[in-house]
């Protein structure tokens, strides 16, 4: 009994589906951002798992470099999204995405 690539892919698939559920069901913009983070984490876990256990061989580190770039992109996306959420809250006093529907409101 040992841990193979399939185990990691199952974990990452479940993380992705939970993130998808959050994205579909939440109305709060900050909560939706948490869903995006879950999805991104699932994708990055896939990259690292393939880089270690896939056919490329364990000494190839390209997957890990991709994961590092992905982490940086996720952080950048979170910063801009939260700045937008703050402005949204300033304009509407709410971050509920079903209420904040006016353009140029």
């Amino acid at each position: 009994m040992s841990i193979g690539l399939g185990h990691y892919l199952v974990v990452s698939g479940l993380l992705f589906s939970l993130g998808l559920y959050v994205l579909i069901t939440r109305k709060n913009a900050v909560a939706m951002l948490m869903g995006v983070e879950l999805v991104l984490n699932a994708a990055l876990l896939n990259m690292v798992a393939f880089s270690r256990l896939g056919r490329v061989g364990p000494d190839k580190l390209d997957g890990q470099v991709f994961a590092l770039f992905g982490i940086v992109l996720a952080a950048a996306e979170a910063v801009v999204a939260l700045a937008l959420v703050l402005q949204l809250y300033r304009a509407f006093r709410s971050v509920d995405t079903t209420e904040t529907t006016d353009l140029k409101g």
């Binding site: 690292v48 798992a49 270690r52 890990q64 994961a67 590092l68």
Partner: peptide
């Protein structure tokens, strides 16, 4: 860490 990706 379990995947030996310590830096990540």
């Amino acid at each position: 860490a379990l995947l030996a990706a310590d830096l990540v």
